[in-house]
Design a protein around this nucleic acid. Structure first.
Lengths: 298, 298
DNA sequence: TTGTAAGCGTTATCAA
DNA sequence: TTGATAACGCTTACAA
């Protein structure tokens, strides 16, 4: 032991990988780290994985092409599993994951396939809650600001929101549907254009907080509608900026801590059922964080 | 080949690691992903490493204890090198890195040691530039909002700023020095307290953008000073939020793209001089991005 | 050109 | 309890 210490000997884990076929490495596939929500999710996930004795092999993905080659590489390193928080995904992505023959845990995304498990926020339910808030606050001219069409979570939020609005269609004007790309700027632009067209919304539900921040800045700079007195704004993700005094944005918190815990449970289960496709879905209720952007004294 | 395709065969890279001793994996040690600057730096770094054919073994570190055990694990996986963007670091951290006997590239941090190379922003020079802007804009009551004492980059910015102010000490009131911890809230609190004490600063240089956003919100909410007419504000990092309409913050861009390019150069050099300590330092000039928070018509 | 064998650093198994 | 040996899946060097 003394000799080992002086020589700076470190046991080599590589041979063990060859023997057991388990590398104790997990591929983590991410994209869009510029959204603080994903950055924070990655941080929590990395902590949880380290505590479980697993290494994080990080793969940054911007398009489907890099994903394919990245997955090939992950497979070559004999990773035990893949965790991904890719929001935007087609069925071809799901197919690429399934071909790995390795457990895949989808974090807040919604791929389906034999090896794929999912932990997701209750997007539909949150959409319903948003609609109920609009009802309670007496909103008449509602606006829905969607994320990219490929974002399944955004679609589910829209469904819950629209279905509930329609049940009370006598109390609402026709819903205005806008589309953004989940960035601040797209939220800003969408609302500026809307106001320039002369629309006077009194309730805006944004598919995520980044766009909602853009919405709030657009309201301040274009037109004369004031939040929350003339128009209330609701976001999703509860990013740190939502709590900044300049925004004070009501938002749905996805409770990433719970989601990570559940993801780790799924991961452990999947790792135990070795070489067999493992597929489960778990849903976490988002938690409404009420702030100034919906606080009106009407 | 046909058989390989049907059976889903993937070459195994693990034996190659044993033979060559090179894993083509690079340990990336990060912390504080809640700061968008670090999230974006990580994203760019991950892309560059993948393009260089290197895998990213991610290590999330919150304290020195996890660092030690994490480095042990990295060593066991026979990583080729370490890249870190840890902002806060003592000499004991540098020692832990050096013990790895593996090339370490410090990204915007400043550890010293035989195996350690560094690429850093020209913090001192940016501090000078900030002081010159204050001079030009006729600032009389300057404020410096520092980051954590352990943050070497923040100290260097302070040095450049203070040295230049002192050279023109006849034109400035005594510099007020505040301390934050690089978070939004600490910037907000620092300025609220300052204004409550009755101070009337007319120029605030914040060690990073997160705190500067807090500063801007504090100015809006506490006291009657307006930015930029009564007080100008300067940040560092040029995070996306600095460009948001609600902040419109003048900031120094560290040009992470250039820094990543240089870091990759250093990495390649270090990987070629195998088994020999490699140590170099490169500095990148930060670029001033002028926005509304310093645009005054005085 | 094709084929065989050694070796990488561990773990695990079986024999002494 | 201890010690020798096979095995993991490739690469490489050398022999046929």
């Amino acid at each position: 032991m003394a000799a080992a210490a002086t020589l700076g000997y470190r046991p080599n884990r590589i041979p063990g990988i060859m023997l057991s076929g388990r590398s104790h490495m997990v591929g983590v596939v991410i994209g869009g780290l510029d959204n603080p929500f994903y950055a924070s999710a990655l941080e929590r996930l990395a902590i949880a994985l380290r505590q479980a004795g697993l290494q994080v092999l990080l793969v940054q993905v911007d398009d489907a092409l890099t994903l394919d080659s990245a997955l090939d590489q992950l497979a070559s390193y004999r990773i035990d599993a893949v965790v991904t928080s890719l929001a935007v995904g087609s069925q071809s992505v799901a197919h690429a994951f399934s071909e790995l023959q390795t457990p895949v845990i989808c974090f807040n995304s919604s791929f389906v396939g034999p090896w794929i498990s999912t932990v997701t926020s209750n997007n539909y339910g949150a959409g319903q809650t948003a609609a109920e808030i609009f009802l309670k606050q007496g909103v008449i001219h509602p606006v829905w600001l969607a994320g990219p069409a490929k974002n399944a979570a955004s679609r589910a939020r829209a469904d819950g929101f629209c279905d509930t609005l329609e049940k009370a269609s006598d109390r609402f004007d026709k819903l205005i549907r806008l589309r953004g790309d989940d960035t601040y700027q797209s939220g800003y632009n969408a609302i500026c254009r809307l106001l320039q067209r002369g629309a006077r919304p009194d309730g805006i539900f944004s598919s995520n907080d980044m766009m909602a921040c853009g919405v709030l800045d657009a309201l301040r700079e274009c037109g004369d509608l004031r939040c929350p007195n003339d128009v209330i704004v609701l976001g999703y993700d509860n990013i740190p900026q939502a709590a900044w005094h300049g925004y004070d944005l009501t938002s749905f918190d996805q409770r990433t801590d719970q989601m990570v815990t559940v993801a780790m449970d799924l991961l452990n289960e999947a790792l135990q059922t070795v070489d067999h496709p493992f597929s489960q879905t778990r849903t976490i209720n988002a938690q409404l964080i009420e702030r100034g952007s919906t606080r009106t004294s009407k």
